[in-house]
């Protein structure tokens, strides 16, 4: 297992909302918990992953997410069981939509 911590600058997400959880820690899958964070311009992401040695891939996937979406002011926690970047990106989009949905 490897623990990774990232902070990305990101456009501020307008409203804070109740926490949202998406996905399951199953083989090739992951769960993503989105909560409101501290700094409105920063997206904090912590990852627990079963696969060692993919820190740079995670950084690239998550940086792309934080750059393309307004997720400033969120704190995201991920438990991963070997999901591919395709699955990670899809779950991030779903988790963010769930979180935004909770704000309405």
């Amino acid at each position: 297992m490897e623990k990774l911590e990232f902070k990305f600058p990101s456009q501020a997400l307008l409203a804070a909302a109740p926490p949202a959880l998406c996905g399951v820690v199953g083989s090739g899958n992951l769960e993503i918990l989105v909560r409101s964070g501290v700094d409105r311009q920063i997206c904090e992401i912590s990852v627990n992953t079963s696969a060692r040695g993919f820190g740079e891939t995670w950084r690239a996937v998550l940086a792309t997410f934080a750059a393309s979406q307004a997720v400033g002011g969120t704190s995201i926690a991920i438990n991963d069981m070997g999901a591919t970047p395709a699955v990670v990106s899809l779950r991030l989009a779903q988790a963010l939509a769930d979180y935004r949905g909770g704000a309405q």
Binding site: M1, V24, A77, N79, D80
Partner: peptide, 9 residues
């Protein structure tokens, strides 16, 4: 975690 496995919340 002690066995090096990711848990679920």
């Amino acid at each position: 975690a002690q066995l090096d496995l990711p848990g679920a919340f």
